[in-house]
């Protein structure tokens, strides 16, 4: 019995040590593990001079309602918002199916000297809601355009 108790202590001590060290590693790397920054975080980083025109980064948020503008040369212009701050994004290339107004989006690229985010790729972010189209229509009717 004593031997078993000792074994339990040893295993838990071992496990706690490793779990703590992994936690600390992840904590130290938290700024690199995040996949994208919101417009507010990017603004903060610009203010702190952590990023400049050269830094490659990902900007994520919602595509602002009726902000998508098609330009003549096939490129598009739209605004990414986190409902606090917003940022104008310029992009030329293929857009994913889920890229729509009021949907999540992630743009990869950098900020030019005019403060416009020039994206070289666009990823659509899907949310956690799954429903049939009829339900979506009914929701729209009941609660207005949410």
């Amino acid at each position: 019995m004593i031997k078993r108790k000792k074994r339990i202590y040893l295993i838990s001590l071992f496990f706690i040590t490793i779990a703590t060290s992994i936690y600390l590693i992840l904590w130290a790397l938290r700024d690199n593990i995040v996949f994208f920054y919101s417009p507010s975080e990017i603004q903060q980083k610009i203010n702190l001079k952590e990023i400049n025109e050269m830094s490659k980064l990902r900007l994520g948020g919602m595509v602002k309602e009726s902000s998508i503008k098609q330009l003549n040369d096939g490129s598009i212009n739209f605004i990414i918002t986190d409902f606090d701050r917003e940022m104008v994004v310029f992009y030329k290339g293929i857009i994913p199916d889920l890229f729509k107004e009021k949907q999540g989006v992630i743009a990869e690229g950098s900020i030019n000297n005019e403060g416009i985010f020039v994206a070289n790729s666009i990823l659509a972010k899907h949310d956690e809601n799954y429903m049939p189209p009829e339900v979506q229509d009914a929701l729209k009717k009941d609660y207005g355009d949410k």
Binding site: R30, I33, F35, F36, Y37, G60, D127, E128, N129, Y130
Partner: peptide, 17 residues
């Protein structure tokens, strides 16, 4: 963290979305 993958739909405290 912020991820491209969506958050949990079913195994969360709220009702499943």
């Amino acid at each position: 963290w912020t991820t491209l993958h969506q958050p949990a739909t079913i195994s969360k405290l709220d009702t499943p979305s």
